[in-house]
């Protein structure tokens, strides 16, 4: 397998959606890209697709600072939802924060595979997905 089926972007920034889609498309490593504007929207989607393997994402790129439901709140809900999910989902926090406190907090959550500081360049994204495909990503 050398391609990821589904990826979700959870970020309140339109432009981030646009350019990250472009970057991801250029790598040809992902089949489908879905976007959400906050944690609440993403959780709603996951709840509606609990066992729909075709629909569920393999990877979520999660922003931290979002209105309505931020990244941390999303993670809390995600953890309680996880047992019902039919698929292993890797979550990358993608943030413009380089606050050590945020990074520490992220590392302490086992559902978080890694903490990526924006910008998400093509090279960074390829590295991320290759790590995941070769199974070196944190469980």
């Amino acid at each position: 397998m050398n391609q990821v089926q589904n990826i979700c972007l959870v970020d309140d920034d339109d432009l981030f959606h646009f350019i990250t889609k472009k970057v991801i498309e250029r790598t040809d490593l992902v089949k489908n890209i879905k976007v959400f504007y906050n944690g609440r929207e993403a959780i709603h989607f996951l709840e509606s697709a609990l066992s729909l393997m075709e629909e569920l994402p393999d990877v979520i790129l999660l922003d931290l600072n979002m209105p309505v439901m931020d990244g941390w709140e999303f993670l809390e809900e995600f953890i309680s939802l996880k047992p019902k999910l039919g698929k292993k989902i890797s979550i990358y926090i993608v943030s413009s924060s380089n606050d050590p406190a945020d990074i520490m907090k992220a590392k302490s959550i086992s559902e978080v595979t890694d903490f990526v500081i924006k910008p998400v360049t093509e090279a960074k994204f390829v590295e991320m997905i290759q790590g995941l495909l070769s199974g070196s990503g944190k469980e």
């Binding site: 981030f16 350019i19 380089n98 910008p119």
Partner: peptide, 24 residues
């Protein structure tokens, strides 16, 4: 410092990527 991190880096990284895309 937090503002710089949150509010300058986010748009700046968007610009960086856009610039990459334009060149590529």
């Amino acid at each position: 410092t937090q503002i710089i991190a949150h509010n300058i880096r986010a748009p700046l990284s968007n610009l960086l990527i856009l610039n990459d895309l334009i060149r590529q």
